[in-house]
């Protein structure tokens, strides 16, 4: 069994990464350990029993309560290495930093990450992970039959079928405004995030959104390299 740990900024990223990895690896091939760091202690959120001989084991750790992604990776790198993990990934939002800081933050974000004996890499979501949700245009009609791609493009201020993720300055807010037009909300509650994550078309995310979102492509590539 190959083991990967992913440290994320919050609940939204945790729910999304779990679903994304399941879609890419195949449900039968991956087990998850979902945790949250609280008061320097790992609190188990859910754990899929290791009963189906899955060849991948992924720990997805939400750092939001009391740590930052890079710091959590530094703190836990040695113990993960000891436990036989083969890759550590981190996922950070660029927001609220300006897009102009992207290159610099991308370089700085990885400058402190330990890699000796266990590769580790921080990935950035530009500006937030919701930018990728925004570009996945097929999910809108699943959220509501009245929600069209045209409405989403109008509210976003760019064509969501051809635009890049950088076009949205504050993607979660834009997503919320889009959903609001049909009386629905997006305030990052567990139910709302799960509704969107479930509604998305992962084939469309994998091929179309990936081709337009470089940092999303980087994240998927890291995971695929690990799977190979």
């Amino acid at each position: 069994m190959k083991k990967i740990a992913v440290f994320v900024e919050g609940q939204t990223e945790q729910i999304f990464i779990k679903k994304l990895f399941t879609e890419i690896a195949g449900a039968k091939h991956i087990d998850f350990n979902v945790e949250k760091i609280s008061n320097a202690v790992f609190l188990k959120q859910s754990n899929q029993p290791d009963g189906n001989n899955a060849r991948i084991f992924a720990s997805i750790i939400d750092c939001s309560n009391d740590s930052k992604v890079t710091a959590a990776i530094i703190d836990n790198h040695a113990s993960l290495k000891k436990s036989g993990y083969e890759l550590v990934l981190g996922l950070r939002d660029l927001y609220p930093k300006p897009l102009a800081d992207l290159q610099r933050i991308s370089r700085l974000a990885n400058s402190r990450v330990p890699t000796a004996g266990l590769p580790a890499k921080i990935h950035l979501a530009v500006m937030e992970v919701e930018a990728w949700f925004l570009l996945e245009y097929k999910h809108y009609c699943v959220i509501s039959e009245h929600l069209t791609e045209q409405i989403a493009s109008t509210i976003s201020g760019f064509d969501i079928k051809t635009g890049s993720p950088e076009a949205a300055a504050h993607p979660s807010e834009t997503l919320s405004k889009i959903y609001n037009t049909v009386g629905m909300g997006y305030k990052k509650t567990r139910n709302q995030v799960e509704r969107t994550v479930t509604a998305m078309d992962y084939e469309n995310l994998y091929f179309d959104v990936r081709s337009r979102a470089k940092h999303f492509d980087d994240l998927i590539s890291s995971f695929e390299d690990f799977l190979a």
């Binding site: 890079t70 530094i74 930093k97 800081d101 700085l108 974000a109 402190r112 921080i122």
Partner: peptide
Amino acid sequence: DDLGLNNFD
């Protein structure tokens, strides 16, 4: 702030 570390660091 850009490094993404905890304040203690």
